[in-house]
Design a binder for these strands. Structure first.
Lengths: 158, 158
DNA sequence: TTGTGTGGTTGCAATATTAAACCTGATGCT
DNA sequence: AGCATCAGGTTTAATATTGCAACCACACAA
């Protein structure tokens, strides 16, 4: 009767959620992407129980989202930093942010705006483009079965 | 000792997660965006317990992500469809999908590819652009305090 | 070497998830 | 109309996860 795992699911959305789709993981990742690195920083920032934080950090490391490195201040402690796989989550954070900016009932409670570092101006909305450069909305897309490509090997060996 | 709510948080990422950041909601929304509408369809597709599905649907309706409409086949049952606020979640689903496509260890287990309906070709990666059209990565962005604008009213009345 | 901060682990109470049984109104069949 | 069945839930009870607080070990500072 465990919480059902989505790890084996064929839907890529479900597979992503299986990795960091729980209540806290994305917030930890957000904090990490803001430069937080230490256990105590995460705990203070998120206000979650220490045991929960400990297990989340452990599984995020196991799953290759975070890695531990020796503390940057020379002390014997360790720090948690994003791997490339973890940095790849950035667009998801942006998408979540932009959804709130557009649809939240109390946008005045949002504390920050994402700006480009160079000019300091707010970024544009994430754009989904076709290969020939058209902007696509949900209605302009469909899902197709994935081309078999590598899966063929299994059939060959069978 | 309830599950801590993120509703009042000032971070837009947290606010979004508070609305649909639990284990099942995003998958229900994904299904809805694929055209599933009926309780039984969701249940069969997701394989979750019916009581959980019932409560999730109820809260998603309460929060303005889904709305109920009379069944499209003329029967007396109701169906669940996305509101505009719900359709706005589409980019988040795309971002999750693309993360898995890029970083999953077993990409061969992904069943589908998102293509543009016109040409049938895979869509490009979501792009974050500055106002002058440069492509931005995480490192090219910062967060700035939100311009006070409407918040001023509170200060005035104080 | 005594004290304090960091980074956890452990135990327990509260809450959430799950599966399965049950219920109710709608639909279909004759 | 009368009966069976289906869609869409609710209820119940077992199990799992969360949250809090107390505890612990090591690092570091005086």
């Amino acid at each position: 009767m465990k919480r059902t795992s989505l790890a084996g699911d064929s839907c890529p959305v479900a597979r992503a959620l299986d990795v960091f789709g729980d209540w806290w993981s994305l917030l930890i990742i957000r904090d990490a992407s803001l430069g937080r690195r230490r256990f105590g920083e995460f705990q203070a920032s998120l206000g979650l129980a220490k045991n929960i934080l400990a297990t989340r950090l452990r599984t995020l490391v196991e799953r290759g989202i975070l890695k531990t490195v020796p503390a940057s201040d020379g002390s014997a402690y360790q720090e948690y930093v994003l791997t490339p796989k973890g940095h790849g989550i950035f667009p998801i954070l942006v998408a979540l942010r932009q959804w709130t900016e557009e649809f939240d009932e109390h946008p005045d409670e949002i504390a920050t705006v994402m700006v480009d570092r160079d000019k300091g101006k707010p970024v544009k909305k994430l754009a989904l483009l076709s290969q020939d450069g058209r902007v696509l909305g949900a209605a302009d897309t469909t899902l197709k079965p994935r081309p078999a490509a590598k899966r063929a090997r299994r059939l060959v060996t069978a």
